[in-house]
Design a protein around this nucleic acid. Structure first.
Lengths: 200, 200, 200, 200
DNA sequence: GATGAATGAGTCTTCATTCAT
DNA sequence: CATGAATGAAGACTCATTCAT
């Protein structure tokens, strides 16, 4: 399914992906039929199978592109920042912003975890993101800026906080993303306690 | 679908729920057919519809029971503990343990978010859990033990960390839950920074 | 399925037949399930199959009894009347009254025509009624009271008028049966024309 | 279910309606399965749902078309006839002929009465036919050609006679329709009595 | 490139009937 | 007599995919 596409062809393909992503997010992957997607765009079924070999492939394609786009966004955000802690904070903010701009894709990530066919693809992309973050954590630990700990685990914890707050506050409650991002950053960096043992 | 069930009937119903939960978690809700469930138990198709009015209702029933069970587990864990910060830590540990003991149910929660039909039911239970946690946070803030902030948001952040670490480390990588729980508690309470502004 | 029934048994059986007849008439034979019937009476499924060997048999039983009851009603109505034309008129009135008192059974007759399994049983009973009526017609012709013609056909025409008017005016529009009966009698006996050729 | 159909599509649709009408008439609506219909035409199950959104809709479609066709037939038959009594007679003849040519559809009308879902649609069409006939009756009364009476009721009586005689004699006994039509006309216009009170 | 039409395996669900207790 | 439980064939309907035009 690697066709040479004309300009118009690439646009069609993009249209299909965007429309499908929206529907998948709104109603779920399975409850959304191919017929529905092509009808929504007012084209015949043939069109769909011209661009994608199956519904499954379409989903994977959307997933790949989304992960790629998120990563690019994060990298642009931290580009040129030397301090690793600041890079972490900028990464969290970038994720939150991206998530608020692409709630459907965020929702698709959530679905992909739950189905054996898609989970591996998702994990692969997530692993890349986590490794990126873990690198900053490691560097910050080395520099003595943050407390010692398993960098991968910490990166996952950050991811968990960010993802969850994005869903509940930005998507569901419609709060402005910057303030939720600030809360996430503060939670991750400062923790909850007023006084704590600094055992470094 | 409120039948009077005999002892045997109640057992059958429980069997169905457990078997279905496992399948739903393994392969996803949609890819699991009712036929598969009843075959797995070696009974006729009518049995399913004797106990549940639809596949959807079965899922909701599993969801409700799981949320109820999780909550009971958490309440038992913190019972008798006066210090709110310790209650938070005990709650995180209890969640992590429950999650390690019921990975299927944890997976079902993840799926429920992604489908409009199940999301409301999920959110309702989640809201209960979050409100419980937020109460402890509020009390801890009042006592001056943890820094000021929106208790609901903090509760959600804790939930995000716990959920995500449980999935990645306990379920996927098979790490022992107590050590992941410790990491989660530490992350939430102490944060990452070595030095930080205490603005209280 | 010829059980010796106790008094109580006969009542149960009657209850089942009446309740089922009502449902069959309201929603149709096929859309009414055995489960629904027994639930409506608050008994278990076993009860049903204790009294009837199948749903089909139940329907036939209702049909038979209804036809029998209608015929008895008609015979009582004309009993002792010597004039055949008056017997015809009395028969029409009796049918109309019975129909207004048993709209469900009237509806069941209508359904029975439409299904191969029940049509023969229905026709058999109908034939009896028509033969009864045809006898009066024949006698009236012999006496020179009504015009010559095929008695069976005339009897059917009367049946058609009566049945149809009963449905539309008595059942559907709720008009009082005696006035509809009068209209039917007048229509059958006098016809529509003001002037006509009397070719006797 | 408003698709743009090609020529071929329209033919398929028609085929389905005709075949289904026959089966519904022969065995009843419920005992006829969709599977049976498509098998009878040697096509896949999807074909059915390409043209009709449900079995119920198919039935209604057949019903509508049949009523429309019957009405058209009647109107053509009376076209140009000035005398209302002759129009009534021509209408009866036209109905009888149509009924003999479309016994399945006649049977479907009979079934439609018996089920709540179809009865309203049937009544609507029947009302149209009755109103047509009632108009002629009214005019004939005004002209002093037929005796006074409720035109709607008279129209229904005529309908009852015609319908019933068509079923019993034309469909079931196979008598030639013109002679049954003559009998119906005579019955309706002249009535049964040799002598009668002319109270006009 | 694109469309309407077709396929048919597979889905959820119903229901008449039977049976152990 | 009566009940709750079970059966399993059959039903309506869906949908990813293919194909002739």
């Amino acid at each position: 399914m690697n066709r040479r596409l004309t300009q118009r062809g690439r646009e069609r393909r993009q249209q299909l992906m965007e429309f499908a992503a929206q529907r998948f997010a709104d109603q779920g992957y399975h409850p959304t039929s191919v017929a529905e997607i092509v009808q929504g765009l007012g084209v015949g079924k043939g069109v769909f199978y011209w661009y994608f070999s199956s519904k499954e492939e379409l989903f994977l394609e959307i997933l790949r592109e989304a992960q790629h786009d998120l990563r690019r966004t994060q990298q642009q955000a931290i580009d040129g920042e030397d301090d690793p802690v600041r890079r972490i904070a900028l990464g969290i903010r970038a994720s939150m912003r991206w998530s608020s701009e692409h709630p459907q894709l965020h929702q698709l990530f959530a679905f992909a975890v739950t189905e054996e066919r898609f989970a591996p693809a998702l994990r692969k992309g997530e692993q890349t993101a986590v490794s990126d973050a873990a690198r900053h954590v490691r560097e910050a630990i080395t520099r003595g800026e943050i407390r010692d700990g398993d960098p991968e685990l910490i990166a996952h914890a950050i991811l968990g906080v960010t993802t969850h707050l994005a869903r509940r506050f930005v998507h569901e409650q419609g709060r402005p993303w910057p303030e939720v991002a600030d809360a996430a950053v503060s939670f991750c960096l400062d923790g909850l306690l007023v006084e704590r043992d600094i055992l470094v």
